[in-house]
Write a protein that binds this DNA or RNA. Structure first.
Lengths: 238, 238
DNA sequence: TTCGTTTGTTGATCTTCATCAACGTCCATG
DNA sequence: CATGGACGTTGATGAAGATCAACAAACGAA
């Protein structure tokens, strides 16, 4: 294996993703089984309860993980952003449905080849483990939201989460306006928060009226005071 | 290291817990750092946001993991039963509060000693990983419940979950009555389901009136028809 | 036993959010 | 330019569950 440049060397998420732990020879072997894939919004990546064919790193874009009840009620159980890892290692069937919500660029690895690599490279498995712990933290934080927060707190929490994960432009440490685009439509936000479309819409106008945010179109959010929004999201005070 | 008997050899959860993967010499080293601990109900095992001192396997009893908002609202984000592993490896601060809900017997391992062992024994880390994946599955399943199920469906789902995890006596494959004791009080069930005590109580009487279950005292449940209860828990039909 | 505390049940009422319905806006397409 | 569809907002009404309150049952301690 030589010193020539790999695709991985110019990868935007090289160090934040699970690949970050790999040594040069390791990254070369991983590079050899990697294929990038571009998906339009709404592309189904993984079907609930089906055998996944590949794993993937998200290079850019947003993917939603959903579960649903027999009668069509749906809940988003995870949102994955750039540098997140997609797929459940060591599981034969997907416990959720995965679908792109924006244009998405993936770096995919065929399932069995990738699993062989996790056996060979202990750091890779460890990194996957760490990532899974992060997902678990996020899931449990969201359980608190779903079980115990009001609609207003839910929407505020959602905006904070997206602002943080979208690495929005002009993200001051705190205070001062921050602008970013929502990756999700109202219906998806509702599925994420356990609310209806109408309630989400009403809460947006409420936040607007109360000067927490302002809107440009329906997708662009300007948070006027991040700290005040954070306070609202947990209502220790008002 | 000889062939003498270890405490682990007579452990009730030896093979279901994370220890199940270990070879003889490995289990001997683990045994050397293990201490059993008996806790009464209501004992605080881990405080939210504090440094944990030890990890533990649950040998018997039930432990609840909770998160709360500033104003006292609380949500149970995990329930751990016999053979479950307690504590977040590779994390310095606990993301939740952990407390025994019944009498609990733990097999504890001092944190740094145990982490050294996970470095030495790859299978141990792998087993922890698998356990974390199970926790994540459970958390996401519960997000669907919290976000999208009605109070009645929530309580039905809860009973099914407990019946499954408590390895209840007379657990026919399906159909036929099944009896078990609830490990949680009404207030804890409410915190688990994102409801109030009153609503939980009302749903219990509803299930009783509708002949899904019968009660002996407030803790002993007899599920009259498991399959019918399962149908109710997802209301694809009535 | 009796008292007091904790836990659970039930009823009356109120609040929040869902549901149903109408309408507006933005695009894509013929 | 009209037409239709997807998406978002707003209003009127209803239902599920929260809240407030009273009481019952279980249990431990004096």
């Amino acid at each position: 294996m030589g010193e020539h440049l790999l695709r991985c060397d110019s990868c935007a998420v090289r160090h934040r993703s699970v690949c970050g732990a790999l040594t040069r020879p390791e990254i070369e072997r991983l590079n050899a089984i990697a294929h990038t894939k571009n998906l339009p919004p709404g592309h189904i990546i993984l079907r609930d309860n089906e055998k996944p064919g590949y794993f993937a790193n998200i290079i850019s874009g947003v993917v939603k993980l959903t579960k649903s009840l027999g009668d069509g009620r749906q809940q988003i159980v995870g949102l994955q952003f750039a540098s997140d890892f997609l797929g459940r290692p060591f599981r034969d069937f997907s416990p959720y449905h995965a679908e792109s919500v924006t244009e998405v660029q993936l770096c995919t690895f065929e399932k069995t080849q990738f699993e062989r690599l996790t056996k060979d490279f202990r750091d890779l498995e460890h990194r996957l483990f760490e990532h899974t712990l992060d997902e678990l933290d996020a899931a449990q934080e969201w359980m608190l939201l779903l079980g115990r927060k009001s609609a207003e707190e839910k929407v505020a929490s959602f905006l904070l989460m997206v602002a943080r994960r979208m690495q929005s432009v002009g993200c001051k440490h705190s205070g001062g306006p921050t602008r970013f685009d929502l990756p999700l439509a109202r219906a998806e936000i509702a599925d994420f928060l356990g609310l209806t479309i109408e309630t989400v819409s009403r809460q947006f106008t409420r936040l607007k009226v109360d000067k927490y945010i302002s809107l440009e179109g329906s997708r662009t959010i300007i948070v006027l005071d991040m700290e005040r929004l954070r306070a609202l999201s947990e209502r220790s005070d008002g």
